[in-house]
Amino acid sequence: MKDFNIDHFRYTGSTTLKLKKSPTKIDDFYEDNEHYEAILRQQAAEIDKLQERMYSYNRYGLVAVFQALDAAGKDGTIQHVFTGTNPAGVRVYSFKRPTDQELDHDFLWRSWRELPERGTIGIFNRSYYEEVLVTKVHPEILTQSQRLPEESTTDLDKLFKHRYEAIRAMEKYLYRNGFLTVKFYLHVSKKEQADRLIARIEDPDKNWKFEEGDVKEREFWDAYQDAYEEAINETATDKAPWYVIPADDKKNMRLLVGRIIIDELSKLPFDEPKPNAERFKELQKLIPVIQGQNE
């Protein structure tokens, strides 16, 4: 059984990521299913406690970005890792194809709208990174669909360089204002993705998860690997790190993500709420009032 060492998966820009050398499967963090469930429950309780402390302190927030290819397990990971967290302290937003309204704004606009309040965890299921991933693989989206000024699309290398700069600046700005951005790339192998897509086709109850377009996108596998590698290397910083998570084993993936969330929340310098003797004394006077309301 493997010990948690999240440094193996953390990228801050000090080293260069090579996705082909990054594992999609590692030794298990759990002994069996019962052990996995026990660790997951323990992590959920820790995340809930840390989020509660962050909420009561009300100075910091956390943005957790989840990026991955189709069938890597984003939805299930978010569901299992945060299942024990107070719903009032978590906001989940899934980014789909941009709407007409969103296309009438800059590429970061719709993400700004969904940022969490202080004291809460904002979870982005896909994010602004789609605009340097999908558009990198399919540049015709930029030149034909995004209503950009013509002069900005004449040099796409320059356009992406500017977008990386804008993303780094946004995440730096958030950090300076008390919001930590933690980014996860769920790294699944091509074979495992194929097995999961086929499973969705073979199980009628999972057909709703399958989109025919997923098969077409597999033809661009190598291009997506290159796009992710470049995006991570261009935007990984110490204050907004990327974690490249082996995703061929869903249980391992969830436990690793949970451990990282706990570690990142634990770094925030919020204090335990301090008892206020005067307030405690004043509140005691309300007990007989409440009891009297039962009569």
Rank of each mutant, 00 (worst) to 15 (best):
S266H: 11
Q42N: 12
F210W: 09
Y185C: 00
T83R: 15
Q67R: 11
I47R: 13
E234K: 05
T85E: 02
L159S: 09
F270W: 06
T16I: 15
I123P: 02
T24Q: 10
R10W: 01
R196Q: 05
I232A: 04
R218T: 04
T16W: 03
Q284N: 13
V257G: 10
R91A: 11
D28I: 13
V182A: 02
L50F: 09
L268Y: 03
E171K: 03
V134F: 00
T83V: 12
F95S: 00
K206S: 00
W221V: 04
R196C: 10
L62A: 03
S14N: 13
Y30R: 09
T135Y: 07
R110W: 12
L283E: 09
K216T: 14
T77C: 00
K191F: 07
F179I: 11
T235N: 00
V81F: 05
H187V: 00
G213N: 12
E212T: 09
N86H: 03
E282I: 05
L17H: 08
R91C: 11
I47W: 10
D222C: 08
E151G: 02
R113V: 10
R196Y: 06
K274V: 15
L69T: 10
K250T: 09
G292R: 08
R254L: 04
P149T: 02
V137C: 01
D157C: 01
V63N: 06
G292D: 06
Y128T: 03
N233D: 00
D248V: 10
L255C: 15
R110G: 11
N86I: 06
L108V: 05
T120C: 13
K216P: 11
H138R: 06
L180T: 12
L159H: 07
W112K: 01
Q291W: 09
Q79V: 14
R53I: 10
R113N: 14
E282W: 09
Y93D: 13
L133C: 01
L17T: 07
T16V: 03
E31D: 15
T153F: 07
E165R: 06
F9V: 02
S145R: 12
F220L: 08
V81K: 14
L103T: 07
E140W: 08
K274R: 14
I287K: 08
I121Y: 07
A72W: 01
R118C: 00
